[in-house]
Simulated assay, not measured.
Amino acid sequence: MIDFANAAYVKLNERNPADAHADLAELLLPDERVLVAFRGIRDSVTFTTKRIVAVNVQGMTGKKKDYTSLPYSRVQAFSVETAGTFDRDTELELWFSGLGLVKLEFGAGVDVRGLSRLLAERCL
């Protein structure tokens, strides 16, 4: 399990959903689609039609990976912080039943309001 309190999910930027689908193809259910995906330096977060999949790449070679599935059904609350004039980064905070707070930080230009709509559609 990824330690989200100390996770290196800093400054996630958008990535091609098709690339994320290819990376996660063996984990996805037959009727599950990738909606939007983000990548950090090595790690990634993907929002699908059923869950959020966080991938933590480990080790020097990056061959070892931790896949954490965060089902929308376990989200108790979420919060988005938009960019400001001087602080161009955005944030998404999710509170999961049994897990606690998961905080994701995004680089400039990521539409966190769109993520908020996506979460509202899946969680409410």
Results as ranks from 00 to 15, higher is better:
120 A>S: 04
55 V>A: 07
9 Y>C: 13
98 G>W: 13
111 D>H: 06
89 D>R: 12
30 P>C: 07
11 K>S: 13
15 R>S: 12
87 D>T: 13
28 L>F: 12
5 A>E: 11
14 E>S: 15
104 L>V: 02
29 L>T: 01
50 K>C: 06
33 R>S: 15
84 G>K: 07
5 A>K: 10
6 N>F: 12
20 A>G: 14
117 R>I: 00
6 N>T: 10
10 V>P: 00
113 R>Y: 00
108 A>P: 01
103 K>E: 05
109 G>P: 15
48 T>L: 10
58 Q>N: 12
20 A>K: 14
40 G>A: 11
4 F>N: 04
123 C>K: 05
37 A>H: 11
123 C>W: 03
29 L>E: 14
32 E>G: 02
22 A>F: 02
54 A>H: 06
80 V>R: 06
66 D>V: 08
52 I>V: 14
112 V>R: 05
12 L>Y: 13
124 L>C: 00
62 G>W: 10
121 E>G: 11
93 E>M: 08
116 S>Y: 08
46 T>L: 03
103 K>L: 06
62 G>L: 05
51 R>T: 01
41 I>F: 14
44 S>A: 03
62 G>C: 09
22 A>R: 13
47 F>W: 04
79 S>G: 08
27 L>Y: 13
110 V>D: 08
11 K>L: 13
21 H>V: 00
113 R>W: 03
38 F>E: 05
95 W>S: 01
75 V>N: 14
84 G>T: 07
90 T>R: 09
114 G>W: 12
42 R>E: 14
90 T>I: 00
29 L>R: 10
2 I>P: 07
59 G>Y: 07
55 V>L: 09
84 G>S: 13
122 R>M: 04
66 D>M: 02
82 T>W: 05
93 E>T: 07
110 V>G: 12
12 L>F: 10
105 E>I: 00
92 L>D: 06
16 N>Q: 03
56 N>Q: 15
113 R>G: 14
99 L>W: 02
108 A>F: 15
16 N>K: 10
33 R>A: 09
83 A>K: 14
67 Y>T: 00
78 F>N: 12
29 L>K: 08
59 G>Q: 03
49 T>R: 02
45 V>H: 09
3 D>H: 11
63 K>S: 09
82 T>M: 10
64 K>N: 03
45 V>I: 01
69 S>L: 09
51 R>A: 01
40 G>R: 03
17 P>E: 15
9 Y>S: 11
98 G>L: 04
60 M>T: 06
87 D>M: 14
36 V>D: 09
28 L>P: 10
83 A>D: 11
19 D>P: 00
72 Y>D: 11
2 I>C: 09
100 G>S: 11
83 A>V: 06
110 V>H: 14
34 V>C: 08
79 S>F: 01
96 F>K: 05
16 N>F: 03
80 V>C: 09
116 S>L: 00
85 T>S: 04
98 G>A: 06
